[in-house]
Design a protein around this nucleic acid. Structure first.
Lengths: 346, 346
DNA sequence: CTGAAAGCGCTAACAG
DNA sequence: CTGTTAGCGCTTTCAG
């Protein structure tokens, strides 16, 4: 098939390959390769001539072809289900940690089509591992028991030990703090919007909710516990369900900020004032939580730090060292903002 | 070289290839490939047997090998110099725009080592284009006149037309609004920390600063204009320089939020109160600006929308269509928060 | 010092 | 329906 077949858009040209360089320099591709990689065995004059052609053509070796040949690529992969506030915060931390280490970062996003396909991370990992990346960080993977061709670290995984090294935060205690905060404000009817059933973090946040209620002697009402899947779309339905109840809750704890913000939007739409009529607590403390109106009370998770740590552990793994810690859990804190207030006797 | 050579860390295994599958299923690699890609010409029974081996081995075709063979990869590349607030906000918008389009997103970060290497985006683009990605978005590229093997869109580029389609925001007017705001508060001695000299956005923001001053009849003082390169590290020096002056400015306009926040940190350290002793305006309105204490007055740029739009234009390009608009400039607005206040007669 | 040749993992013609 | 073969762009022995 020739290029003529496809519509060639806007300044698109044929790829320049090592062969083009070789021909134009009047040498073999092997020689060009040697120049490219600073290998010995090329005379200075030849090297210079080849280099000139390379420069004039603006040639750059294809990452793909090179990766296929070499076992090392100097690229670290970060596999995410989607580029949302949590994962992008993590990226910032990872990026800072990688500076000066001589690695490049390759973020691969499933483009949000992971809801149906459990195990995306395993498939993505095998797609990239061994050929494109030397190591990887899996963000919120649902399956991590797979052996892999490269070392990897799981952030906020489905389940902990045994398996690869993991980094997460204290979800149980965080959720507890959130709900205790609501209780201390006088709330008794507290709804919950849960996270993705396949993630350990979601399970722990729900457990924290239950524990907080129980230790205050408040009954856990099944109807007040809804499914949000960490997904704004699902959370919308869940919040409508909660807020549409005859005896609706005076407070809601959402398992992440995105869902809490969605709940806020629904409340606004229904004319329910936050925090006067409804108190709202999220989880994560993503930047968007602060930008909301009113700003969101939430549980802080040191997301960037989690990114930094993951890289650190991964680099140790890749160096063949045993990491200092295999499973790190970072602390969480309550951040009180404007979305929570006293229960006003409803 | 065999695998024995490298330290095999923590559960690392040899890569499973199509050959392994073929051997175990007792067929040729061609047949496996056909099954993999749902091609005709495989009997149902063979297909099933092969599929079973694929499943049991957890085999997934290498993206690299596949990309090398095929011209289409269904992957869109986003090339960024670094994963900082601006680029990650952009990613969120791009990610949302790509949902359901059948493409995957591949973000390639130079890992911050771009300061010295101008033209990183051109090199990265040729590394990936044609083999790994079908199209690309270049974020803050310094050179965009390169013809490429795939269509691409430049966000906040070095320079506009002619060249590839571009997406940016109204930098000139934004900067003007920022400085006019300061002037309206009574400030006359207004410092500026400029952006990266190789970016058009930085030039326009400086020009907006000058224009605002001039149209209010305020002299432009060269000493008050410093270089920050959009980089917190450089901005630290710049702000120290400004704040260390005997007759230091009563207000500073930083060409992006990151530098403004750095200036805030320096001011804190020097015991200069914001906004009482110093007013501060940034640019971008990244989430971090709201989280600062005091929260940062800044110029809003619709970053996520820029990401969305870039994807949209790119998809049109890739479909061989002429985009509706080749160069889009989105509006900017002043967002007044707590870091600016009246000049108190110094 | 240089180039021919093999092969990384995969797909697509083309024979059989 | 199945396998053999060539080749994507590159690196690396290994002869010359």
């Amino acid at each position: 098939m020739t290029l003529t077949g496809r519509g060639i858009p806007h300044g698109t040209t044929q790829r320049t390959t090592i062969r083009d360089v070789a021909e134009q320099a009047g040498v073999s591709v092997a020689t060009v390769s040697k120049v490219l990689n600073n290998r010995y065995g090329v005379s200075a004059s030849t090297a210079e001539r080849v280099q000139q052609v390379i420069d004039s053509l603006g040639y750059e070796a294809s990452l793909v072809a090179r990766s296929l040949r070499n076992q090392r690529t100097n690229v670290i992969g970060i596999l995410v289900a989607d580029l949302e506030p949590f994962s992008t915060e993590l990226l910032k931390g990872a990026s800072r940690a990688i500076h000066g280490k001589g690695y490049e970062l390759l973020v691969y996003s499933a483009g949000g089509l992971t809801q149906d396909h459990v195990g995306w991370e395993r498939r993505y990992l095998s797609r990239l591992a061994g050929t494109l990346v030397d190591g990887a960080i899996l963000v919120t993977p649902t399956v991590v028991d797979t052996p892999s061709e490269v070392p990897y670290v799981a952030v906020d995984p489905h389940t902990g030990r045994p398996g690869p090294p993991t980094v997460d935060s204290d979800n149980l205690n965080g959720a507890r703090l959130a709900v205790e905060h609501l209780i201390s404000l006088g709330h008794r009817r507290i709804g919950m919007i849960c996270g993705r059933a396949d993630l350990e973090s979601a399970r722990l946040r729900e457990e924290g909710y239950r524990l907080a209620l129980e230790s205050s002697g408040i009954d856990v009402v099944p109807d007040l516990i809804t499914l949000g899947g960490y997904d704004p779309g699902l959370a919308e339905g869940a919040s409508r369900q909660l807020l549409g109840m005859a005896d609706r809750p005076t407070a809601i704890f959402a398992a992440n900020d995105l869902m809490a913000l969605e709940t806020l939007a629904v409340a606004n739409e229904l004319g329910i004032r936050v925090p006067e009529d409804l108190s709202l607590v999220g989880f994560d403390n993503v930047p968007d939580a602060v930008m909301a109106e009113p700003s969101l009370t939430t549980i802080n998770q040191p997301i960037q730090e989690m990114g930094r740590l993951s890289i650190e552990i991964l680099l140790q793994l890749m160096a063949g060292e045993e990491p200092d810690e295999l499973h790190v859990t970072l602390p969480t804190q309550l951040v009180v903002r404007q979305s929570t207030g006293p229960a006003n006797g409803r």
